[in-house]
Amino acid sequence: MRYGRGPEVLSDVSLSLPRGSFHFVTGPSGAGKSSLLKLIYLAARPSSGAVRLFGEDVTTLGGGDLPRIRRRIGVVFQDLLLLDHLSAFDNTALPLRIAGHKPSEYRNDVAELLTWVGLGQRMNALPPTLAGGEKQRLAIARAVVARPEILLADEPTGNVDHEMALRIYRLFVELNRLGTTVIIATHDQDLVARSARPVLHLDKGRLRPLPPQGPAA
């Protein structure tokens, strides 16, 4: 995969992740972690090769079919991509609104989730007024609110303290236990070591699977 006419950022990457699995993607900056996630959440197409999701070759899908796939995927973006003019509550409810759910169906779930990630007192706050860690938790809440079948998180614990990182990790584990496939790109070696989950290690755009490291958290 390459962006435009730039250098190849991912090459010879071939992997198959079983439904309900939990993987970390690690590697140094620029190794291609975010690009790999972008291929999965359909923000980029491979310059060659194919990406199959839910049994479909999504590289050949037309633009009209992408929303159907994207609604089954939750993403914590590296740069969060929160909408600054919407409250924390509105930001979190976004995927549910886009999917066409009625407010009465989800307003309590959204409030409960925001309380769970520690934003119970900031539901009406706009993202620019939130601290870095609060923004990160808000982005996570938005990613998981629709109970996606795949959860992708790009450095989800980068701006939170250790305790909150573990709490967020436990949320991901809980979602995984309920059937969500989880893929987390991270630099947090401590978290990776504690989790005892399989690791996809990227280095200069090439994939090197590593066995699970350390004890389970």
């Binding site: 919407l86 409250s87 509550f89 509105d90 407010p103 307003r107 900031r122 539901m123 009406n124």
Partner: peptide
């Protein structure tokens, strides 16, 4: 810092595009 109490029951979806 905390905001005024927020009541989810009274929440109305905001416009996806900024009102301004």
């Amino acid at each position: 810092m905390t905001d005024a109490p927020f009541d989810p029951a009274r929440w109305r979806p905001a416009s996806f595009l900024p009102d301004e």
